[in-house]
Simulated scan of single mutants.
Amino acid sequence: MTAQRTFRIAAIPADGVGVEVVAAGRTVLDALADASNGRFAFAWQEFPWGSDYYAQHGRMMDEDGLAQLEDFDAIYFGAVGWPTVPDHVSLWGLRLKICQSFDQWANVRPVEFLPGIQSPLRKADDTDLSWVVVRENSEGEYAGFGGRNFAGRGDRGEVAVQSAVFTEVGCERIIRFAFDLARTRPRKKVSSVTKSNAQQYGMVLWDDVFRRVAAEYPDVETESVLVDAMAAKFVLRPEDLSVVVASNLNADILSDLGSALAGSLGLAASANVNPERRFPSMFEPVHGSAPDIAGQGICNPVGAIGSAALMLEHFGLHDEAKAVQHAIEVTSGKGVRTRDVGGSASTEEVTAAIIENLLV
């Protein structure tokens, strides 16, 4: 049977547990497609890029890798990083290269508290908690502007300059994205995060743009919070959060805090989105490559499978995305969990349980 719609997806497992969680996510998506009665299908092409590729070729991906990826409907990414390659080389050579070159300027990281998984927050025991961190993903502190100079001065004479870049266009588009997302949620609220008391240029520009854009959304609550105060709020008043929008670095840190509060970084899904769809968007779990457990079959596939659900949303398969997320919740609620969240199930067992709960 020929599917009514086939989505072409580039799979880049990359390093460590990325290989295992991408395989898990692909298994779930293929099972979903098989049960769709030909409404849709997925055509996969896997790319062997990552730290092993670097060891052989001296680069993290093919020289024309971006051209190879450009015509896919989406990219499904695992994790990057390995002890044999400096972290800044592996990150900038693969993940950030794709994000910046494809202008995936909106990074969406939901913070979901799953049933049956204990949170370190006492408040999570009796409070319904759920929020989304929206991260500016193209400039800010990760713009890559700067350099190292004066190495010839001798001992301790070198100077490194790392510049954060904030543009009015970059600030406005991510802030407006956050407001549009807030309008779709039960609580219509956007919390803007900066450190504008200390960083008086770029982040004051962000604050100015936030106030200007907020005036166009009178139906959405707003607040502006300094990043240190927001870190405390994540712990002390998380029930007051809905959509949190922040710069590249601040949102990166805060989203990891949110995932830890939900129980594990292994649960965290994310989407690197080019909203204009000029380029493919990329979907990946937040966690790293975890060299200490790679290849043992015990890593948590939930973050990768949740990222697959975000990819389904991006494709317009909204009911299927909700079904995958519901299957994740049912599975965790039944106690089928990997050891990072207090269980004893293997990666394969959790994946199989999610598929079973998806197809009932």
Results as ranks from 00 to 15, higher is better:
Pro86Met: 13
Pro86Tyr: 02
Pro86Cys: 12
Pro86Lys: 13
Pro86Thr: 10
Pro86Val: 12
Pro86Gln: 12
Pro86His: 15
Pro86Trp: 11
Asp87Asn: 06
Asp87Trp: 00
Asp87Gly: 01
Asp87Met: 07
His88Pro: 02
His88Ala: 10
His88Ile: 10
His88Asp: 14
His88Ser: 12
His88Cys: 02
His88Trp: 13
Val89Gln: 09
Val89Pro: 09
Val89Lys: 11
Val89Gly: 05
Val89Trp: 04
Ser90Asn: 09
Ser90Lys: 07
Ser90Tyr: 05
Ser90Trp: 07
Ser90Leu: 12
Leu91Asp: 08
Leu91Met: 12
Leu91Cys: 05
Leu91Tyr: 09
Trp92Ala: 12
Trp92Val: 06
Trp92Leu: 08
Trp92Gln: 02
Trp92Ser: 00
Trp92Pro: 04
Trp92Met: 03
Gly93Tyr: 08
Gly93Thr: 03
Gly93Ala: 11
Leu94Trp: 02
Leu94Glu: 07
Leu94Lys: 10
Leu94Thr: 10
Leu94Gln: 08
Leu94Pro: 01
Leu94Val: 14
Arg95Val: 11
Arg95Leu: 09
Arg95Gln: 09
Arg95Met: 08
Arg95Tyr: 01
Arg95Thr: 08
Arg95Trp: 06
Leu96Gln: 14
Leu96Asn: 12
Leu96Ile: 06
Leu96Val: 02
Lys97Gly: 00
Lys97Ser: 09
Ile98Gln: 11
Ile98Leu: 06
Ile98Lys: 04
Ile98Tyr: 12
Ile98Asn: 01
Cys99Thr: 14
Cys99Tyr: 04
Gln100Phe: 02
Gln100Asn: 10
Gln100Arg: 14
Gln100Pro: 00
Gln100Gly: 05
Gln100Lys: 15
Gln100Trp: 02
Ser101His: 14
Ser101Asp: 12
Ser101Asn: 13
Ser101Lys: 03
Ser101Ala: 15
Phe102Pro: 13
Phe102Trp: 10
Phe102Asn: 06
Asp103Tyr: 09
Asp103Ile: 01
Asp103Arg: 03
Asp103Thr: 04
Gln104Ile: 13
Gln104Phe: 05
Gln104Val: 11
Gln104Lys: 01
Gln104Tyr: 11
Gln104Pro: 08
Gln104Ser: 10
Gln104Thr: 07
Trp105Cys: 02
Trp105Pro: 04
Ala106Leu: 04
Ala106Gly: 01
Ala106Asn: 05
Ala106Trp: 01
Asn107Gly: 03
Asn107Lys: 06
Asn107Arg: 00
Val108Gly: 07
Val108Ala: 12
Val108Phe: 02
Val108Ile: 15
Val108Arg: 02
Val108Gln: 01
Arg109Glu: 10
Arg109Leu: 10
Arg109Val: 05
Pro110Met: 11
Pro110Tyr: 14
Pro110His: 13
Pro110Gly: 11
Val111Cys: 11
Val111Lys: 13
Val111Met: 12
Glu112Phe: 01
Glu112Pro: 05
Glu112Leu: 10
Glu112His: 14
Glu112Val: 13
Glu112Trp: 04
Phe113His: 07
Phe113Glu: 06
Phe113Thr: 05
Phe113Lys: 12
Leu114Gly: 01
Leu114Met: 04
Leu114Val: 00
Leu114Gln: 07
Pro115Ile: 02
Gly116Phe: 00
Gly116Thr: 09
Gly116Asn: 09
Ile117Ala: 05
Ile117Gln: 04
Ile117Phe: 13
Ile117Arg: 08
Ile117Glu: 05
Ile117Tyr: 08
